[in-house]
Design a protein around this nucleic acid. Structure first.
Length: 270
DNA sequence: CGCTGACCCTGACGGC
DNA sequence: TGCCGTCAGGGTCAGC
């Protein structure tokens, strides 16, 4: 579920419930995430005020005066605001109890996410080598062009590389490549500046549009209903293998690139 | 340095 | 029904 648009939607959803609130207590029911939840996390966080909730790529940063809580949702994670008294269910691994009887509840069946602490004065190692935000002015076609020279790997893997640009997951990589008419298997180093300009523009457009959808459809997700699928009707490629291309009717092909399924139209994408 | 594949884990789904 | 293989939005890391 969590591609960048959903992480941003989560941020916007939880931010008003967290900013200015004090953490009263943290309950870690299962610390076995992608990396173990540090033993000191609960005591470090307790008593602190959350001063801001930020996002970097697909990471969420809960800022306090002494540092930040770094959260990643992995493949199956979610954060919800629930009443403090609400009974936790299966896979509800962590509760951050805030004043005002609210609770920030972390749910993650596959446990690929993380809950880590970074003290003030440094940047967490996981964030240090990240590329620019896709929706910022720092990200454009020229950057893609420059970084891709001499790279022989597929362009799809290239734009999903967090050191190049953050937040482009499998769904939107497929979509952006379709919209820009670029074959996902094409070598990254063999694409012109002009086509990279178009690709960067398509990445921005598809992410922006998905965030807008998320903001509309998941408006009440804080209440507990965060079903995915809101963007599905607008997908041109992802999940449509074997179905006709919405533009030309050619049956869409599927192929694995870098261990991820890639769907594309042999007619529209070159 | 760039690329490939293994790995972390649970659950859903299709075929038999 | 049930069992088995395959696949799933993420990202890191070792090894070549």
């Amino acid at each position: 579920m969590p591609e960048l648009p959903e992480v941003e939607t989560t941020r916007r959803g939880v931010e008003p419930h967290c900013t200015g609130r004090q953490v009263e207590r943290v309950i870690v029911r299962d610390s076995r995430l992608r990396w173990p939840v540090p033993d000191h996390l609960a005591s470090t966080l307790s008593g602190q005020d959350i001063v801001a909730v930020e996002r970097r790529g697909k990471y969420l940063l809960f800022q306090t005066v002494t540092g930040y809580l770094l959260v990643h949702l992995g493949m199956s994670g979610s954060l919800r605001v629930v009443e403090a008294a609400a009974t936790p269910g299966r896979h509800d691994h962590i509760d951050v109890l805030l004043d005002g009887d609210t609770c920030l509840r972390y749910h993650d069946p596959r446990r690929f996410g993380c809950f880590l602490w970074q003290a003030k004065g440094g940047e967490h190692p996981l964030l240090v080598n990240l590329g620019p935000e896709p929706l910022s002015a720092d990200f454009d076609g020229l950057l893609l062009y420059r970084l891709s020279r001499r790279r022989k790997g597929p362009v799809k893997s290239f734009i999903m590389d967090g050191k190049v640009v953050v937040g482009v997951g499998n769904i939107y990589a497929n979509e952006a490549l379709f919209l820009s008419g670029i074959h996902p298997g094409r070598a990254a180093g063999r694409i012109s500046l002009e086509r990279y300009r178009r690709l960067a523009q398509c990445i921005k457009q598809v992410l922006t549009s998905a965030i807008e959808q998320g903001g509309t459809t998941l408006r009440d997700f804080v209440g507990g209903d965060g079903k995915p699928g809101y963007f599905a009707q607008q997908l041109f490629a992802y999940g449509r293998s074997g179905q006709p291309c919405k533009v030309c009717g050619t049956l869409l092909q599927e192929r694995r690139l870098g261990q991820r399924s890639s769907v594309y139209c042999v007619t529209c994408q070159r």
